[in-house]
Design a protein around this nucleic acid. Structure first.
Lengths: 330, 330
DNA sequence: TAACTGTGTGAAATCGTTTAATATATGCTA
DNA sequence: TAGCATATATTAAACGATTTCACACAGTTA
């Protein structure tokens, strides 16, 4: 591929002059500019950004690590992350961790070696120390890593509260929450906290069951329900699932067991991503995450951090409120 | 960030020696190796891949251009593209064209300037000439650009044929095909070709209506059906949609019009991606694309092309067969 | 006329690696 | 003792851009 040298040669000027024309810097005579532009066109010259990156130490590259990119929630989140980033001229390298700690660590190493300008972490399988030591601007989704690393999240506590309140208002007396895995200290765990507290406050029976995993298919969810709830399902009159896919599975499972939804059992989900919006029957009652805001905010927060001279400036967390979407399952 | 020079200084050797230790090249004494490794560890040295890329002219970067990354078909395709590529140590830059020609052209320029090793094109809004002149290894999905550019696709013709045959076998006499936009010469247009031919061969009435767009939401599809088929819907007893989302919308629309599915109208989709697999009611009859094979094959074909010395070697197209998945809408 | 200002251009250093060419020391063989 | 293979480490050029500094020339000002 032709470089700036060939262009300079063809135009009969120095490489400095070509660089000047390309970047509109310094004085350039009209005739010289013309000569250079002609040479660029004729040789179909394309400036080598790699060389620029090396010199300037700025790659305009953002690493995006997600637990599963084909999950409807994350694919939608990625959409908005990319939308904002591309408008600001940043590129996104997509890293699919599959919740595998080794893969996640490898991706971090790769991003560091390739001098990514920043990292958006939506997957959290490593210890906090691992993230702290990579020394690249980071913003996390749904997890607090340290006070110097900003995070973006929706108001999970409020989400859990709204869900419990809604079920209670609808008359439920025996509630169950099927939560995500609680082992890592993620902010989505606040849904379970709020759920418990709200139930207790209203003197309503409650239980929590861990089992709503991101990577689970319909069949996985079905199996989980069948193994853990087959016998006890009729004990509950309201179930709040930590994601819509589990809620959907539960609704069809319950119907299959001849339990009337919502009369005998009310079911709520969480997310309201493209799958749920598309779904017409049932229309799930769920908590809507502001995915567009979350995605854009992740990009915005990271880029602001990258471009601010003062590294400790603006590391405020951003928390978006959620909405209750009422369907016909409650 | 520390460079190889600082490491060399700390270890009391030359940069060449450090480079040798890193890459296991040439002779290195045990004591020297130890000194270097200690220095690397102590300084937390991370080799700069950008510099390597500049020198070797190999970025291990693949540009992936898709029309809409949050669409269930493409997000699943991306999953498998990434899966294969990451195993071969390639990185994926994700480019969401949104079917916008300007955005697509900008992405191509960006990938060229960043010296991507190759490009996977799943979005096709530009003229063929534009793709030919970028001079980077390309593989396309679902479109033939030139005889020197390999493509991967599923057997769209067979898909259209199977769909028509199935509806005919089920007794349909008046068929409609809601196709994708036919303006660009994409291989998915073969579905419409095969549909027409198969109908004609079996002496069955048929029509084709363009309107199944990738970016369409449920509401968009509903509006399309309402505007174009409201009056004529009862004229048909079988409709083959070019994607599952349109088929799903159509099923709910028809039911809303009190048309019995499948008794009065049989509906088929195309894709069988995660949304359709998750969906329990209706269970769509559809044509299953082998998304995993398609994604891996896109990566494999591109990487083979990148790594082969002979640039004209192995530009065979790859075509995967499809399957009929029978649900309860036919 | 000397100093200054505005305009236009080029040589060379720099970013962080790899690698070909070269140097040096050691031990072995003829 | 020269010749040679082996082992180890270094020097310097290269990759393709940007940028600092230097310089040349023309016109203006004091």
């Amino acid at each position: 591929m032709v470089g700036i040298k060939e262009v300079a040669e063809k135009a009969g000027v120095s490489v400095t002059t070509v660089s000047r024309v390309m970047n509109n810097r310094g004085y350039i005579g009209d005739k010289t500019r013309k000569k250079v532009e002609d040479a660029i066109k004729e040789l179909d010259y394309s400036p080598n950004q790699i060389a620029r990156t090396l010199l300037k130490n700025q790659s305009y590259l953002i690493g995006l690590i997600v637990p599963e990119l084909s999950h409807p929630f994350f694919s939608e989140l990625i959409h908005w992350i990319e939308e904002y980033a591309s408008r600001k001229n940043y590129k996104i390298i997509i890293c699919n961790s599959l919740q595998n700690a080794q893969k996640e660590a490898d991706y971090l190493t790769m991003l560091r070696e390739n001098r990514a300008d920043g990292i958006i972490m939506c997957s959290h399988t490593l210890e906090i120390e691992e993230y702290k030591k990579i020394n690249i601007p980071i913003v996390t989704f749904d997890r607090i890593i340290s006070s110097s690393i900003p995070y973006v999240a929706s108001d999970n506590y409020h989400g859990g509260e709204l869900a419990a309140q809604h079920l209670i208002e609808k008359g439920c007396k025996n509630l169950l929450h099927i939560s995500g895995p609680l082992e890592f200290d993620m902010l989505s765990n606040r849904r379970a906290d709020a759920f418990q507290l709200t139930c207790s406050r209203h003197k309503v029976n409650w239980e929590v069951l861990e089992g709503a995993n991101i990577e689970a298919t319909y069949a996985d969810n079905w199996r989980f329900i069948d193994e853990n709830l087959k016998a006890s399902l009729s004990n509950y009159d309201g179930i709040f699932c930590s994601n819509d896919l589990m809620a959907y599975t539960l609704v069809t499972y319950a119907r299959h067991m001849d339990i009337q939804i919502p009369e005998e059992l009310k079911v709520m989900g969480y997310d309201y991503h493209s799958f749920t919006r598309m779904l017409q029957e049932p229309k799930l009652t769920t908590i809507k995450q502001p995915i567009e805001h979350l995605g854009k905010s992740l990009s915005r927060t990271l880029i602001k951090q990258i471009e601010s001279k003062d590294p400790d400036h603006n590391i405020q967390p951003t928390i978006y409120d959620i909405d209750l979407v009422i369907g016909n399952t409650t």
